[in-house]
Amino acid sequence: MNKKIVHDALILTVFTVVIGFILGLVYEITKDPIAKAEEATAQAAYKAVFEDADSFSTYDFDAEAAASLLEQNGYSDEINGVQEALDKDGNVLGYVITVTAKDGSQGNITFSVGIKNDGTVNGYSVTSMSETPGLGDKAKTEDFSKQYKNKNVDSFTVVKQAPSADNEIEAISGATITSKAMTNGVNACITYFQNELEGGAE
């Protein structure tokens, strides 16, 4: 009986080592292509919300300070990264702030928001979403996202009827939770911009 236990344990150990080696090999093979694909997706999102920019430069932001700022202002969202949008001469035109909204109806929603130096929102571009097809995922469409474009407000609010002011966003029919998640995410970016970036990053 003891010999059988030892034999089975050895087989299990060898099997585990082999599987671990294979998984490690697969990771090494795929990590670069995955990283390149993620970077390409991010760059496309940056360009979508800042068409005038010639290039983008990573802004070294403090993630903990950003989290604290958002929490103090009542947001559960997370700032994932900040890019400076540059013209051909290297002048900063504004910023692209990538945020994860954690209050979507089906999970987290990650998207990038473009904000000009004067606080005008260029719009947003979604990079990750699992909202319900035909309902919440309409947040990715131009019909919904255009409501935020070229608006300079302190914050947006979601309404269920046709907007009567620049800061009002008409909710997607049947997807109010998603609409509020997107709006909270944009508002979180505006709050971060106003407190950390407006007037030029130091």
Results as ranks from 00 to 15, higher is better:
Asp154Trp: 00
Thr132Trp: 05
Asn184Pro: 00
Ala139Glu: 06
Gly119Cys: 08
Ser173Gln: 07
Ala53Leu: 05
Asp62Phe: 09
Gly136Phe: 08
Gly136Ser: 06
Leu135Pro: 00
Phe21Glu: 05
His7Trp: 13
Asp77Phe: 01
Asp103Arg: 08
Phe111Cys: 05
Ala188Gly: 01
Val113Glu: 05
Tyr124Cys: 05
Tyr46Cys: 08
Thr176Phe: 04
Ile19Asn: 10
Glu64Asp: 13
Ser125Met: 01
Val121Gln: 02
Thr191Leu: 06
Ile190Gly: 01
Val49Gly: 05
Gly200Phe: 06
Pro133Leu: 02
Gly20His: 13
Ala101Val: 08
Thr176Glu: 00
Thr141Glu: 14
Asn152His: 08
Ser76Arg: 11
Ser112Gln: 12
Tyr148Cys: 03
Tyr46Asn: 15
Leu10Ser: 08
Ile115Thr: 04
Ala66Cys: 01
Gly123Glu: 03
Ile22Met: 14
Val82Leu: 09
Leu69Asn: 03
Ala35Ser: 14
Asp32Asn: 15
Glu170Ser: 04
Tyr192Ile: 07
Glu202Tyr: 07
Asp154His: 05
Phe21Val: 14
Asp103Lys: 09
Ile34Arg: 13
Glu51Ile: 10
Asn150Glu: 15
Phe15Gly: 04
Asp137Met: 05
Asn184Ile: 00
Gln43Phe: 09
Asp103Gly: 01
Pro133Ala: 09
Thr120Pro: 01
Thr30Gln: 12
Glu131Cys: 04
Val82Arg: 03
Gly185Asp: 06
Leu69Arg: 03
Gln147Cys: 09
Leu25Arg: 14
Ala85Ser: 11
Ile19His: 07
Ile5Tyr: 10
Thr157Glu: 15
Lys47Ala: 12
Thr183Glu: 04
Ser105Phe: 10
Val99Trp: 00
Val92Ile: 14
Asp8Trp: 14
Val113Gln: 05
Lys180Met: 02
Gly81Tyr: 10
Glu39Gly: 01
Val17Thr: 12
Ala9Tyr: 09
Asp154Ala: 13
Gly94His: 02
Val99Phe: 00
Ser173Arg: 02
Ala37Leu: 14
Val159Met: 07
Thr157Tyr: 03
Ser112Met: 09
Asp166Cys: 05
Met182Gly: 02
Cys189Trp: 07
Ile109Val: 11
Glu168Trp: 04
Gly90Cys: 10
Asp143Met: 12
Asn91Thr: 11
Ser57Asn: 12
Lys160Gly: 11
Glu84Gln: 15
Lys36Trp: 06
Lys149Gln: 15
Val14Cys: 13
